[in-house]
């Protein structure tokens, strides 16, 4: 028991440095997912029939194929096929980001569709272009409404990021397993990694709740 604790204590800084890698992967993926997701959602709501169809296929694909398979496909397959040299870290961010963009687009789409559509008309009537109206009127409200869904998506991407271990990214899970297989203290190390993930989930969702409260529109209950 005490032995385990000593190992754990010694490994903790190493795991915590891994948490920085985890945070970097998740932050990158969430941002990529956010930027792509917003565009996909806007395209899916306001785009023409063909655009909507293409986006529909994109969403269907990235929601239907397992993360691990996509990681292998991109890292071992596409990267060498297209002769681009990307690190496992970068590929993990991209793949997690693409998958997340598919899920995030559905969050944003739902939020856009829940907005009263008259506001778009009013913006047009003032002489705004559709692009301006969407950027200035629709999206600010969409993003506010999307925070709870986004927070949920964050906790999923965070946990999924542990799969990046399969490509050898030295995030928390990889480090826990690395130490475990040398010290034979598997259980304490896995539990430590698990709890670190829980702490990151807690901190992230808490932060987003504070943000949600901060940007809440007074008098508006949705």
């Amino acid at each position: 028991m005490t032995e385990s604790l000593i190992v754990l204590y010694g490994a903790l800084p190493y795991l915590l440095r891994g948490s920085l890698v985890t945070i970097a992967v998740v932050a990158g993926a969430m941002m990529l997912g956010l930027v792509l997701g917003i565009h996909l959602a806007v395209g899916q709501v306001y785009g023409g029939r063909w655009l909507r169809r293409v986006i529909g296929v994109y969403v269907w694909f990235f929601r239907g194929v397992p993360l691990l398979v996509l990681l292998f496909l991109f890292y071992f397959g596409l990267c060498s096929l297209l002769q681009i040299n990307l690190s496992a870290f970068t590929v993990s961010v991209i793949v997690l980001g693409l998958i997340s963009s598919a899920y995030q687009s559905q969050i944003f789409r739902g939020a856009i569709m829940s907005l009263p559509q008259g506001q778009l008309k009013a913006a047009r009537a003032l002489g705004m272009s559709d692009g301006k109206a969407i950027a200035l009127i629709i999206l600010p409200q969409t993003l506010r409404l999307s925070i709870p869904g986004w927070s949920n998506e964050y906790s999923i991407v965070l946990k999924d990021s542990a799969v990046a271990y399969a490509l050898g990214v030295m995030e928390m899970m990889a480090r826990a397993h690395f130490v475990a297989s040398r010290t034979y203290e598997h259980l304490p190390l896995y539990f430590a990694a698990g709890f670190l993930f829980m702490i990151l989930t807690y901190l992230g969702t808490k932060g987003l709740r504070i943000l949600e409260e901060k940007v809440r529109i007074p008098g508006y209950s949705a």
């Binding site: 009263p116 008259g118 506001q119 008309k121 009013a122 009537a125 600010p140 409200q141």
Partner: peptide, 10 residues
């Protein structure tokens, strides 16, 4: 001017 105002809620 619209029947249901269409103010920008945010």
């Amino acid at each position: 001017i619209f029947q249901d105002f269409n103010l920008f809620d945010h």
